[in-house]
């Protein structure tokens, strides 16, 4: 049994049918554009706008072939860029945020509550306030047009949301376990690696999946920092493709759009539960 909702008021069958119809209608309207996008990407160009049907009359993968090589650099290359950046971001976030969360929840040190308050404060501060100096700094470092500005900040726990998420989880791990480990002679490092991290796989997985998806989806940072098309992420590539095709090849554009969403969709299908629980427990954005 996964559905645990109980009808509070004992609705009548009629109301229930109405609720059903309403929810079904809303989901259809919501999904229609997505389904249309996917189905159109398999239609020949002339069929896309001649019918609203979701089932292609002629099924073709031609649009994918055209789109894949539609820019001077193949989309495959940009997917690889995106994947590398997203995976590095995952590693960076997991390492740095779990360390910070461990310090905040488990270690006693001077100034802990002061830094904790500041950390919460950074969650409130819009990134725009630091954007320009950050850009100028990375420009000075010679990092612009490399993936470093996209990746290095993740290793410095810039996404305080993940610290917060992990703090919530770590707080649920009984302190007795730490104390038992202290009695067993374990120091902070050993407790972190042997007790806290192994017990935190659910939250680490949640943070990893969110990290991947958000980095994959990120448009703003790559837009600012990456100039050469060989370094583009899939998102940047897609947006360049919009300009390049000038909307003359909708099929190819929709095919590439579908492809850029596909990794997220797969992660969504596989980790649906984790994602939804992550949202529900922390009320995180998106």
């Amino acid at each position: 049994m996964t559905e645990t909702t109980v009808d509070a008021t004992g609705s009548s069958p009629l109301l229930r049918a109405f609720a059903y119809a309403a929810v079904l209608a809303v989901s259809f309207v919501m999904l229609y554009p997505l389904l249309w996008m996917v189905s159109s990407s398999f239609k020949p160009e002339n069929e896309i706008f001649s019918t609203t049907s979701l089932i292609p009359e002629t099924f073709t993968t031609d649009a994918y072939r055209r789109g894949w090589n539609g820019l001077s650099v193949s989309f495959g290359w940009m997917f690889l860029n995106s994947t590398v950046i997203a995976l590095l971001a995952v590693v960076g976030n997991l390492v740095s945020c779990s360390m910070a969360a461990y310090a905040f929840t488990r270690l006693q040190f001077k100034g802990r509550s002061f830094w904790f308050a500041l950390m919460l404060g950074t969650m409130m501060l819009p990134q725009h306030a630091v954007l320009i100096p950050q850009y100028l700094m990375f420009l000075n470092f010679g990092w612009v047009n490399t993936i470093l500005p996209l990746v290095v900040p993740k290793f410095l726990a810039i996404d305080a949301f993940f610290i917060f998420l992990m703090i919530q989880f770590f707080r649920g791990i009984p302190r007795d376990l730490d104390e038992a480990a202290v009695m067993d002679g374990a120091g902070p490092l050993r407790i972190f690696f042997k007790i806290i991290l192994p017990l935190s796989t659910p939250v680490l997985a949640t943070a990893a999946v969110f990290s991947f998806i958000w980095t994959w989806d990120d448009f703003f940072a790559p837009l600012i920092y990456l100039n050469d098309i060989e370094k583009y992420t899939a998102q940047l590539g897609l947006r360049t493709f919009v300009d390049a095709t000038a909307q003359s090849d909708w099929g190819a554009l929709l095919a590439m759009s579908t492809l850029t969403i596909l990794p997220i969709f797969i992660l969504f299908v596989v980790f649906q539960r984790l994602l939804i629980e992550g949202i529900a427990t922390t009320g995180m954005k998106r």
């Binding site: 009984p174 007795d176 376990l177 104390e179 038992a180 480990a181 202290v182 009695m183 067993d184 002679g185």
Partner: peptide, 16 residues
């Protein structure tokens, strides 16, 4: 704690 030559049984058992 580990070097005092003592061992402790916790109320919650605190098994890993």
């Amino acid at each position: 704690a580990a070097e005092r030559g003592i061992a402790m049984v916790f109320q919650s058992y605190a098994l890993y």
